[in-house]
């Protein structure tokens, strides 16, 4: 089917709005007014509403798109990881790639539409699938301490999220927290969970 020039323009404008919203929200947070997104995108304010009738429609589309992209990326990298060390290294890589938007999402999630919770859960469940496969294998081999999977998972996320949510204390300006602190967080976490003495608890 032939796509008319008008339809192509419409799709391009929609894409431009989504990309601009992603970058503006990454810098300024989710409470940014739609007029700022329109100005940054170089389009009229009314044009945003022609594509997304409400700000929630725009946010829901953006969050769903983000969850799918980050989830797929995590899945691809995590799938090849054969040890908890490698899996968490890959997790840090993905977080660094999406750091600004992801930090906004975890900091502001409770004030956002329900879609934000689903997006958050999709991302974490993808990670939890690979994490539980790898960690349960390591526990049965005796290389990781015998602790509940959900506590091992939540301790790792709690640690990483604390640094991301308090970015202003841990980095200067726009520096990546994950780049600067990721190796230290990973090495500390592994020291806590590894069964170094080979004792099966």
């Amino acid at each position: 089917m032939r796509v008319s020039t008008r339809q192509v323009q419409k799709q391009n404008t929609r894409k431009k709005i989504m990309e601009t919203a992603y970058s503006v929200i990454s810098n300024k947070g989710f409470s940014v007014p739609s007029s700022v997104i329109a100005e940054e995108a170089g389009i009229s304010h009314g044009s945003i509403f022609a594509h997304f009738p409400t700000m929630n429609d725009l946010l829901n589309n953006l969050l769903s798109d983000f969850g799918d992209k980050m989830g797929a990326r995590l899945h691809m990298l995590a799938k090849k990881s054969d040890s908890v060390d490698n899996l968490l290294k890959e997790h840090l890589k993905v977080l660094e790639e999406y750091e600004a938007f992801y930090s906004r999402l975890i900091s502001e999630k409770n004030r956002l539409p329900d879609e934000a919770k689903t997006t958050f859960a999709v991302i974490q469940s993808t990670l939890a699938l690979h994490f539980s496969n790898v960690i349960e294998r390591e526990i049965s081999k005796g290389t990781v301490r015998k602790l509940p999977t959900h506590m091992l998972f939540n301790t790792w996320l709690g640690l990483v999220h604390y640094y991301l949510m308090n970015k202003d204390f841990f980095s200067d300006g726009n520096e990546s927290v994950i780049k600067n602190y990721g190796p230290e967080l990973l090495s500390f976490y592994l020291k806590m969970i590894k069964n170094e003495r080979g004792v099966y608890e």
Binding site: D114, K117, A121, V122, Q124, S125, L129, H150, F153
Partner: peptide
């Protein structure tokens, strides 16, 4: 039950998230 086992969510919250997904 996967969400409860791997992420420790409350059962009702886990069921709601499962449906949303």
């Amino acid at each position: 039950s996967f969400i409860v086992r791997t992420q420790g969510f409350n059962e009702n919250a886990a069921r709601k998230i499962a449906e949303d997904m």
